[in-house]
Amino acid sequence: MIELKGVSYIYPNGNKVLDDIYIRIENGSFTTILGDNGSGKSTLIRHMNGLLKPSQGVVSVCGMDTASPADIWKIRQTVGMVFQDPHSQAVGATVEEDVAFGPENLALESDEIRLRVTNAIANVGLECLEDSLLMSLSGGQLQKTAIAGVLAMVPEILIFDEVTSMLDSDSRSQIIDIVRQLNKRGKTVVYVTHHMEEALFADRVIVLENGYIASDGTPWDVFREIYASGRKVPPHLELAFRLQDAGMISPDVFPMDALSLKEEICPSR
């Protein structure tokens, strides 16, 4: 569980980016943080594993305060973080070396490291590339390697910071599948994105605007709110909301994609 209480953050240059944020991330949940470029998403989540310390307020991870140097080690093991640029989080020459980096830092025995590396690589489906040079991989494969590298630390909570934004649409959906699988298997997920479509699967969506929380709720609530305020939502949702407003489909329907909306309107026999 991650808890932010009254968190504000001011960059050293005086840039106030977060303003009095309260968030509580429950175990096992899937939370998407949605926001435009520069809204403070990265700044926010970097508080969740102690990369940044709040200027004001408290951040705690499973009861440990990120401001306490004694706990930072345990916090980083508990909260794994995957970043946006697949090319600038590689720390080894080959896939297995890169994945081994975390467990090596935990000073584990080499047999245990091997076991964790094999498991983590299997979890992202890169078994056949274990020995490949990172230089020879695609962006999507690199990003899977980065996820495996974090999984090898066996964290309870996983944070993804716009991990798909530099990938093509195929790799994007593969990565999203991996993330959803991990959540189904019990990992707590915080998923940062500026693509609304990627927020649909979440249990909860938090919309960040200029460093404050503009809305927070289930995807249905949040997208309804965004739609009601006249801003763009994914096209199939806009259609669904319009049909609901016109009384053509039930008001509790929240279709994940165009196909499920079509099923709602005319079920296939």
Binding site: N49, M81, S88, Q89, V91, F101, V150
Partner: peptide, 12 residues
């Protein structure tokens, strides 16, 4: 970026 990624993976 790499420094940050290393730090999050418990590098010391």
């Amino acid at each position: 970026d790499v420094a940050m990624a290393m730090e999050s993976r418990c590098y010391q």
